[in-house]
């Protein structure tokens, strides 16, 4: 990851904060709406210029810091993100949709046009891009906060740093390391669970292993993840090729290392297994969807 540029220099006036929504479940905006007292405190320190869900609507307002939730999945969103970029000094992409295309990027692995045609009686009434992609695939982004969802702590820590004039810290460790710090028993080693902890960036607090279950990678790949090796290990645990592929097909399938693993293992499943009922047969995995989803480095 490249070093983020300097935080926005804000003079005597109050800093302006905007919250923009693209294709998403609204869960990452909840990091603020669930913040309780901290939300009220934040509202006293900054001018919230646009945050539709909180009742403040001025889409065209200039902002020092723009929190962007959601992926780009329609032509309208392609245009709108450019406008947001031109009016925002700092863009923070928050959550799996904004940083990797989100769960809706699963359509990037299939034949999206076919999907839409099969789903809509009147596909001509629908406007959607063939792929769902990260904000960073369309405009430069100063900082990405991963996670499905991002937590209140992550967002408030980043905002606090920025308001203090410092570049926010980002997590680099893998979930595995977080488990060790917390003294949690390894579910992969002791229970043979197909845990994504070895390749997933932390920030969540290793919640899933904390409940004795496998991590499903909702924070996305860490730096230099050994995804192929881990996927082989899942095969050795007894997962069939489809099941291995599906480990990478939750919220982060648009992130390049997970996308590649899902695609490779689906291809591996193809000759041996019959197609899943009514499903995978139409989804030709080719090089074409791959190229359009390089969301970020």
């Amino acid at each position: 990851m490249t070093m983020p540029p300097k935080p926005p220099a804000i003079g005597a006036r109050r800093p302006r904060l905007a919250v923009h929504k693209f294709s998403s479940c609204d869960g990452c905006q909840l990091s603020l709406l669930n913040a309780g007292e901290s939300l009220l405190a934040l509202a006293e320190r900054v001018d919230i210029v646009h945050f539709a869900e909180a009742g403040i609507v001025d889409e065209h307002a200039e902002a020092d810091i723009a929190l962007v939730e959601g992926s780009i999945s329609t032509p309208e969103e392609q245009t709108r993100i450019q406008a947001v970029r031109s009016r925002s000094r700092w863009i923070l992409s928050i959550g799996a949709c904004a940083t990797a295309g989100g769960p809706q990027a699963l359509r990037n692995l299939g034949d999206s046009a076919d999907w839409i045609a099969s789903v809509y009686r009147r596909p001509d009434w629908i406007s959607a891009l063939p792929a769902s992609s990260a904000i960073g695939a369309h405009v430069p982004v100063e900082l990405e906060l991963p996670g499905c969802p991002v937590s209140t702590e992550q967002v408030l820590a980043a905002l606090t740093s920025l308001l203090a004039g410092a570049a926010p810290l980002t997590e680099q460790d893998k979930v595995c390391l977080e488990c060790k710090r917390r003294g949690q028993v390894c579910v992969l080693v002791t229970k043979g669970e197909p845990c994504l902890g070895p390749v997933t960036v932390t920030g969540c607090g290793a919640l899933c292993p904390g409940l004795g279950r496998d991590c499903y990678g909702c924070y996305g790949p860490a730096e230099n993840p050994e995804v192929a090796t881990l996927a082989e290990r899942f095969g050795d645990l007894g997962l069939d090729a489809h099941a291995v592929a599906r480990r990478f097909m939750y919220q982060q399938s648009g992130a390049q290392p997970f996308h590649r693993a899902a695609r490779d293992w689906r291809q591996r499943a193809r000759p041996a297994a019959p197609p899943a009922p009514g499903a995978e047969s139409g989804a030709a995995p080719g090089p074409q969807p791959d190229g359009s989803t390089d969301s970020h480095d």
Partner: peptide, 15 residues
């Protein structure tokens, strides 16, 4: 005009 995310479609094939 919330973009469709096609959830029902991509659940197909999952366990």
């Amino acid at each position: 005009f919330e973009p469709p995310r096609l959830f029902e479609r991509f659940l197909v094939g999952h366990h």
